[in-house]
Design a protein around this nucleic acid. Sequence first.
RNA 1: GGUUCCGUAGCUCAGCUGGAUAGAGCAACAGCCUUCUAAGCUGUGGGUCGCAGGUUCGAAUCCUGCCGGAAUCACCA
Length: 597
Amino acid sequence: MRIEEKIVAQIQSALKELFSVEAESGKLSLQPTRKEFEGDFTLVVFPFVKLARKSPEETARLIGEYVKENMDEIQSFNIIKGFLNFALHDKVWTGFLSDAVAEKEYGVAKRDDTDVSVVEYSSPNTNKPLHLGHIRNNLLGYSIAQIMEASGKKTIKVNLVNDRGIHICKSMVAWIKWGNGETPESTGKKGDKLVGDYYVRFETELRKEAQALKDSHNYDDDIARNNAPLMVEAREMLRSWEKGDEETVKVWKMMNQWVYKGFDSTYQRLGVSFEKIYYESDTYLLGKEIVLEGLEKGFLFKKEDGSIWADLTDEGLDQKLLLRADGTSVYMTQDIGTAQLRFDDYNATQMIYVVGNEQNYHFDVLKKVLKKLGKEYSDSLYHLSYGMVELPQGKMKSREGTVVDADDLMDEMYSTARKTTEELGKVEGFTEEEKENLFDTIGLGALKYFILKVDPKKNMLFNPAESIDFNGNTGPFIQYTHARIRSILRKAAEKGLMEKEFDSTVVTLNDKEKQLLKTLYAFPQTIRQAASEMSPAMIANYVYDLAKEFNQFYHEHSVLNEPDLNISLFRVQLSLLTAGVVKTAMGLLGINVPERM
RNA sequence: GGUUCCGUAGCUCAGCUGGAUAGAGCAACAGCCUUCUAAGCUGUGGGUCGCAGGUUCGAAUCCUGCCGGAAUCACCA
């Protein structure tokens, strides 16, 4: 039982015995005492003063005395206005340290295999390379999955690749027309970049054609675009793909393979992975069956032209098309199919979609349509909606060339890390391979932390002109703290201090030690909260706080030069746990921590 | 126009289901390396928490209305 639960139980019986008050569990929340005050846990007594018919101070005093009387762990209490602060004996904290160090991975909950979350993230189109927006998506998705897993759920990471549709056909048309048989091998270009180039080429040429039509026929923008020969060709190619035309499918497969290879290298470098990859070309027909079945059961309705719709007006939304008159499916249809598939594949208790907030409406509708179709799992769908990454001049626009490419960005982070590290003269005695690993770890750590520390639902700003910081509230700061601790621990090991236990009954804690222990103590509940709120930012802020606490402790007290052996041993264990938590927490963000830097 | 989200220091962001004097980092200024890694530590300055009401013993936090910004409201995905 956690210590604060014990205290709460005591407070409950105190209220009952002293004032005959049955405390509502909601009102009885114990919180960590703020740093400026003395004590470890605080009870706000204001909610009870009316019922106690006593002053806040008197109420607090009576409760405090009762609890202290009944709990050995309580060393003392003090009262400031209506705040009752309990202070624990130091040995409670040092005992916690011993217990936590003994755990295999402190903070990580045991896994419950019956509670399965499927996290979909990334979900790229195969006509363009990945950019900064995808990076936020990928980092969020990967991190959320790690956090859920650490909170005790079985978590499956999946990717849904949008490998079919008009956008792919555009790249294909352009490549066939102007490609001269170019391949990634012949050009030395990454496959996703090559295919992206043809997509851009298509759009450029299309714009020219559309402009010509506007000039000659006086068409509107839309009509001109849709009637341009290239567009006609792309649509023709989509039809021929859907018919399964051999030559078309061959080109499609080939170009998609190029893209996958390119994506794989980006994913790998970014450090994200998937247990399963779904392809829309495999799943897009599944939704159709469900929709037709729903029509039969009378959940949906058919219009005169033969198109099939869901009526959501009773839910405050509109009618929504699910199948076109010609029987082809739309985006929503596909997602109905993939939701079902995912549910069937994993018997998921929770299905999380990491998708940008521009699709809020879509997921709202998806949930309601599934409900309408009688799918009991519709409630388990959760759209993890995140905000856009904006540049100082606003959104990224490919037309204006402001798209921040994922690979380029990682390259830049690497270079900055190298430059900074070399200037600081930190890599003497490193092999070339060690150096490369370190620059990668630091560069990516800076990038990932920068993105993940922001609340997912908020839009965030990225300024390419100012490179991401390495000082202050940053990934490298935390990595540095870890490296520092590891350095101490290496030396402690040389001195043979690692295996020895300290005597927890004789250690008197100073402020920094106690603060550090309290922060470490909060790690498991931070994971739980981050999981329930699906917020890696909570982990990021926590680990920053922890690193800061350690640096303050480090600055004021020495671990190895401490003359009292028992205290030195205690501090070694304290450092060991801190390093472990930093590493675990950063791991939940997908960030590696170096041994030296 | 409807719906959803956001608005906290010059800038980038924390602030948990309401609790004590609203916090960090960056930038500015001033200190600290014969001591376990100075990518660090300490200090100074900087705020009508968008505005106005309301609920409450208590509101940055909850409710309502405005103001400002974003997204969305497709037989695109």
